[in-house]
Design a protein around this nucleic acid. Sequence first.
DNA 1: TGCATAGCTGCACACCTGCGCAGGTATGGA
DNA 2: TCCATACCTGCGCAGGTGTGCAGCTATGCA
Lengths: 115, 115
Amino acid sequence: MHLVPADRADRRTIDGHRVCDAIAAIGDPGHVRTWSDRFALLADPNRLSLLLALHRAGPLAVSDLAIATGMNDPAVSQALRLLRAAAVVAGEKEGRVVRYRVVDEAVRGLLEQVS
Amino acid sequence: MHLVPADRADRRTIDGHRVCDAIAAIGDPGHVRTWSDRFALLADPNRLSLLLALHRAGPLAVSDLAIATGMNDPAVSQALRLLRAAAVVAGEKEGRVVRYRVVDEAVRGLLEQVS
DNA sequence: TGCATAGCTGCACACCTGCGCAGGTATGGA
DNA sequence: TCCATACCTGCGCAGGTGTGCAGCTATGCA
């Protein structure tokens, strides 16, 4: 198994076989990127609070989320815009109220781990 | 149940009971902070690659990690310093080689979810 | 129609973060 | 002793990110 790319094949390794294992373990860079982006969305306390609230308390409106988290409305709105652009949450409009839900299965799995 | 803090108790709610549910769902702010910090450590593609390699391919030295990920040595070293400061990884010195391992159980759980 | 509410957007600011470069320390072999 | 290796650190730059403020649109009710 020679998984080391050509541009760094000449560099000395310490545990050569484990380097190949590591390269195999990392896998597709695009896949890693997808997950690091996912983690980045949960890396902000405000966004994480919003997601926990939506995940455990069901669909909630923007202003209710603002009250529950202590954020002000525009901050909630912008955070939700980011999460919506990443297809992590989705909003359903009812009159002038928009209720949001967590729709990304992978993110739901991560939120479950937050005990 | 009146979980809404006094400084925002006067604001009008849309689904009052769900606001309380949400506040209960979010729980301790310190706890949320702990998890968002954890997620932040996994939110960088390079750090995530390092952690995946360490988690799945066993203890690895800095230079081997650099070869496996395509980073250069100082970048790996700095990333590991951050992860070590957060008690996510630990290094064991053998002569002039330091082999790192993932020691944080919660992070291991998250890495397991990265399929 | 007039008005309050719910939500969204743009902008500017300060802040943080990752990275490469250069250089330093410590270990082991010739 | 001399040197190569393995790793670490400090510094500065570029780029991204969160936040508050002000103002906008749209819906519903009197």
